[in-house]
Computed example of a mutant assay.
Amino acid sequence: MHIAILTMTISLPGCRSLKEKRQRMGGLHERFGRHPSIAVCESGDLDRHDASEWTFVVVGASSRAVESLCSEIEDKLQRTVDGRVLEATREFL
């Protein structure tokens, strides 16, 4: 069993309310939380309007599968979120 923790920090320039922040993040929890190998939560910057931090725990039978899922999450986030990814860190357990 291989496990990775992917943490993504996202800038939301011009965001003025928590409601707008939720709309701009576009339901990340629902989108990624459906996958049986991924757990997701908003892990930081909860009260800030202009930033958001999300953590994904990815589990797989091989390191290659885990790496692939992490890359897929990063790519999808960059394409679908109305913001800019500032940082993406991976930690393997």
Rank of each mutant, 00 (worst) to 15 (best):
S43V: 05
T89G: 05
T7Q: 03
I38G: 02
T80V: 14
T55V: 03
S43F: 01
Q78Y: 03
A39Q: 08
V59S: 05
S43I: 00
S37Q: 15
F32E: 09
L18V: 00
A65W: 12
S17G: 03
A65H: 15
V59M: 09
S68A: 10
C70D: 07
S43L: 02
S17T: 12
D82A: 10
F92R: 14
L77R: 00
C41E: 03
S63I: 08
R64H: 10
C41S: 09
S37K: 15
P36W: 10
K76T: 06
F92D: 08
L6S: 02
R16W: 01
S17V: 04
D47Y: 07
E30T: 11
E53I: 04
S11Y: 11
T55C: 09
H35G: 04
V58C: 03
T7P: 01
G33L: 06
W54D: 12
K21V: 09
P13L: 11
G14I: 07
R34Q: 15
I3R: 13
S62N: 06
L69S: 01
L18C: 02
S17W: 06
R84L: 13
G83M: 04
R34A: 11
R31L: 15
V40T: 05
C15Y: 05
K76Y: 02
V58I: 14
E53L: 07
G26T: 01
P13S: 10
P36D: 02
M25P: 08
S17R: 06
H2Y: 15
D50I: 02
H35F: 15
C41R: 01
M1W: 02
A4Q: 00
I10N: 05
D50W: 08
L77G: 03
E91A: 10
L12H: 08
F92A: 13
E67R: 15
S43H: 04
D50N: 10
L46T: 00
K76W: 12
